[in-house]
Lab assay of single mutants.
Amino acid sequence: MLEGKVKWFNSEKGFGFIEVEGQDDVFVHFSAIQGEGFKTLEEGQAVSAEIVEGNRGPQAANVTKEA
């Protein structure tokens, strides 16, 4: 698991990027966000996630919002 913060997230398109210190930004799709209801993230929000290899490079999986 790694910790980072949301760089930006487009709720209409359902994707965005997470900033991780010392690494390239990581793509995040709404389907990777854990929880019930409408899955979205806010800019600057702290999150933790796993990194997996997607079709277009590294992407976030099992994204959870930090308190």
Rank of each mutant, 00 (worst) to 15 (best):
residue 21 E to T: 11
residue 12 E to K: 15
residue 30 F to R: 07
residue 28 V to H: 03
residue 13 K to S: 07
residue 23 Q to E: 09
residue 17 F to Y: 07
residue 58 P to N: 08
residue 24 D to T: 10
residue 45 Q to E: 11
residue 62 N to W: 12
residue 65 K to F: 12
residue 16 G to L: 04
residue 36 E to K: 12
residue 38 F to W: 13
residue 21 E to Y: 12
residue 13 K to P: 00
residue 21 E to V: 12
residue 19 E to R: 13
residue 2 L to N: 06
residue 66 E to S: 14
residue 20 V to R: 08
residue 15 F to K: 00
residue 31 S to T: 12
residue 19 E to C: 14
residue 12 E to L: 14
residue 19 E to K: 12
residue 66 E to N: 14
residue 22 G to E: 05
residue 42 E to F: 14
residue 49 A to F: 15
residue 45 Q to P: 00
residue 58 P to L: 12
residue 62 N to E: 05
residue 14 G to H: 02
residue 36 E to F: 12
residue 35 G to A: 09
residue 5 K to H: 11
residue 19 E to S: 14
residue 19 E to Q: 12
residue 41 L to A: 01
residue 56 R to G: 08
residue 11 S to P: 11
residue 4 G to S: 02
residue 57 G to Y: 05
residue 61 A to H: 11
residue 9 F to M: 00
residue 43 E to K: 15
residue 45 Q to V: 09
residue 26 V to C: 07
residue 36 E to L: 11
residue 32 A to V: 09
residue 64 T to W: 14
residue 12 E to R: 14
residue 20 V to C: 07
residue 23 Q to K: 11
residue 66 E to R: 15
residue 56 R to E: 06
residue 64 T to Q: 13
residue 37 G to W: 07
residue 44 G to Q: 04
residue 13 K to G: 04
residue 37 G to P: 05
residue 52 V to N: 05
residue 24 D to G: 13
residue 60 A to Y: 01
residue 52 V to D: 03
residue 54 G to L: 07
residue 2 L to W: 11
residue 63 V to R: 02
residue 53 E to Y: 15
residue 20 V to F: 15
residue 43 E to P: 15
residue 4 G to C: 08
residue 31 S to E: 05
residue 44 G to W: 05
residue 19 E to I: 12
residue 2 L to C: 10
residue 22 G to Y: 06
residue 10 N to P: 00
residue 6 V to A: 02
residue 60 A to R: 02
residue 31 S to K: 07
residue 37 G to H: 05
residue 58 P to K: 12
residue 5 K to W: 10
residue 6 V to R: 02
residue 52 V to C: 13
residue 13 K to W: 10
residue 65 K to N: 07
residue 7 K to R: 10
residue 26 V to E: 00
residue 9 F to N: 00
residue 62 N to P: 02
residue 12 E to V: 14
residue 2 L to I: 15
residue 10 N to F: 06
residue 34 Q to M: 12
residue 6 V to Q: 00
residue 2 L to F: 14
residue 22 G to A: 05
residue 52 V to F: 10
residue 29 H to L: 06
residue 23 Q to C: 12
residue 25 D to N: 08
residue 59 Q to P: 04
residue 54 G to K: 07
residue 65 K to H: 08
residue 63 V to L: 08
residue 11 S to Y: 11
residue 45 Q to F: 06
residue 46 A to H: 13
residue 44 G to E: 03
residue 23 Q to P: 04
residue 21 E to I: 11
residue 42 E to H: 14
residue 46 A to Y: 14
residue 49 A to D: 02
residue 25 D to V: 08
residue 34 Q to L: 14
residue 23 Q to I: 11
residue 7 K to I: 07
residue 33 I to R: 00
residue 34 Q to A: 11
residue 41 L to I: 04
residue 67 A to M: 12
residue 34 Q to E: 10
residue 26 V to P: 01
residue 54 G to H: 07
residue 10 N to E: 00
residue 35 G to D: 08
residue 64 T to I: 15
residue 31 S to N: 06
residue 16 G to V: 04
residue 40 T to C: 13
residue 65 K to M: 10
residue 62 N to I: 10
residue 50 E to H: 13
residue 58 P to M: 10
residue 46 A to M: 13
residue 10 N to V: 05
residue 38 F to E: 06
residue 5 K to E: 02
residue 3 E to H: 15
residue 25 D to C: 12
residue 38 F to L: 07
residue 51 I to W: 07
residue 47 V to I: 09
residue 47 V to L: 03
residue 50 E to M: 14
residue 27 F to Q: 01
residue 27 F to L: 03
residue 32 A to Q: 09
residue 8 W to S: 00
residue 1 M to Y: 13
residue 40 T to Q: 07
residue 8 W to Y: 08
residue 61 A to G: 09
residue 63 V to F: 02
residue 42 E to S: 13
residue 31 S to P: 01
residue 43 E to L: 13
residue 6 V to N: 01
residue 44 G to A: 04
residue 58 P to S: 08
residue 49 A to P: 02
residue 36 E to I: 11
residue 25 D to T: 07
residue 27 F to V: 00
residue 32 A to K: 06
residue 23 Q to F: 14
residue 54 G to W: 08
residue 31 S to V: 04
residue 11 S to Q: 13
residue 53 E to R: 13
residue 15 F to E: 01
residue 45 Q to H: 08
residue 47 V to C: 05
residue 59 Q to E: 11
residue 56 R to K: 10
residue 32 A to M: 07
residue 57 G to S: 06
residue 63 V to S: 02
residue 1 M to D: 05
residue 64 T to Y: 13
residue 55 N to D: 12
residue 51 I to V: 10
residue 49 A to Q: 03
residue 24 D to K: 14
residue 27 F to C: 08
residue 42 E to Y: 15
residue 44 G to I: 03
residue 29 H to V: 04
residue 24 D to Y: 11
residue 26 V to I: 12
residue 3 E to T: 15
residue 13 K to C: 10
residue 37 G to E: 06
residue 13 K to A: 08
residue 37 G to K: 05
residue 57 G to D: 02
residue 61 A to N: 09
residue 18 I to S: 01
residue 54 G to P: 02
residue 10 N to K: 07
residue 11 S to A: 13
residue 14 G to D: 00
residue 38 F to P: 08
residue 37 G to Q: 04
residue 22 G to N: 08
residue 17 F to E: 00
residue 53 E to V: 14
residue 61 A to R: 11
residue 67 A to N: 12
residue 33 I to K: 01
residue 61 A to L: 11
residue 44 G to D: 05
residue 25 D to E: 05
residue 38 F to T: 05
residue 37 G to V: 05
residue 11 S to E: 07
residue 42 E to Q: 13
residue 63 V to N: 02
residue 50 E to P: 03
residue 18 I to C: 03
residue 48 S to E: 07
residue 39 K to V: 08
residue 10 N to L: 07
residue 24 D to H: 11
residue 11 S to C: 14
residue 11 S to V: 11
residue 2 L to G: 04
residue 60 A to M: 04
residue 48 S to A: 10
residue 55 N to T: 13
residue 13 K to T: 06
residue 8 W to F: 07
residue 29 H to E: 04
residue 40 T to G: 05
residue 23 Q to D: 06
residue 27 F to N: 01
residue 32 A to R: 03
residue 20 V to N: 03
residue 13 K to Q: 07
residue 43 E to W: 13
residue 17 F to C: 08
residue 46 A to G: 09
residue 53 E to K: 13
residue 27 F to E: 01
residue 50 E to T: 13
residue 17 F to W: 09
residue 64 T to L: 12
residue 16 G to H: 01
residue 42 E to K: 14
residue 64 T to H: 13
residue 41 L to S: 01
residue 52 V to Q: 08
residue 59 Q to D: 02
residue 1 M to V: 13
residue 61 A to Y: 10
residue 33 I to T: 04
residue 35 G to N: 07
residue 45 Q to W: 10
residue 37 G to N: 06
residue 51 I to M: 09
residue 48 S to Q: 12
residue 27 F to M: 01
residue 31 S to M: 07
residue 46 A to R: 15
residue 66 E to T: 15
residue 14 G to C: 07
residue 58 P to C: 09
residue 41 L to E: 02
residue 36 E to Q: 11
residue 45 Q to Y: 06
residue 9 F to T: 00
residue 43 E to R: 15
residue 38 F to S: 05
residue 66 E to W: 13
residue 63 V to Q: 01
residue 31 S to Y: 07
residue 53 E to T: 13
residue 60 A to V: 06
residue 13 K to N: 05
residue 31 S to R: 08
residue 22 G to W: 05
residue 20 V to Y: 06
residue 26 V to H: 00
residue 58 P to Y: 10
residue 33 I to P: 04
residue 35 G to K: 05
residue 26 V to G: 00
residue 2 L to Q: 08
residue 60 A to N: 03
residue 61 A to F: 11
residue 6 V to Y: 02
residue 48 S to I: 13
residue 38 F to K: 05
residue 39 K to E: 04
residue 52 V to S: 08
residue 4 G to T: 02
residue 58 P to G: 05
residue 16 G to A: 03
residue 41 L to N: 01
residue 39 K to I: 06
residue 52 V to K: 09
residue 28 V to P: 00
residue 53 E to M: 15
residue 42 E to A: 12
residue 65 K to R: 11
residue 39 K to F: 06
residue 55 N to F: 15
residue 20 V to H: 03
residue 50 E to Y: 14
residue 56 R to D: 06
residue 50 E to L: 13
residue 47 V to W: 02
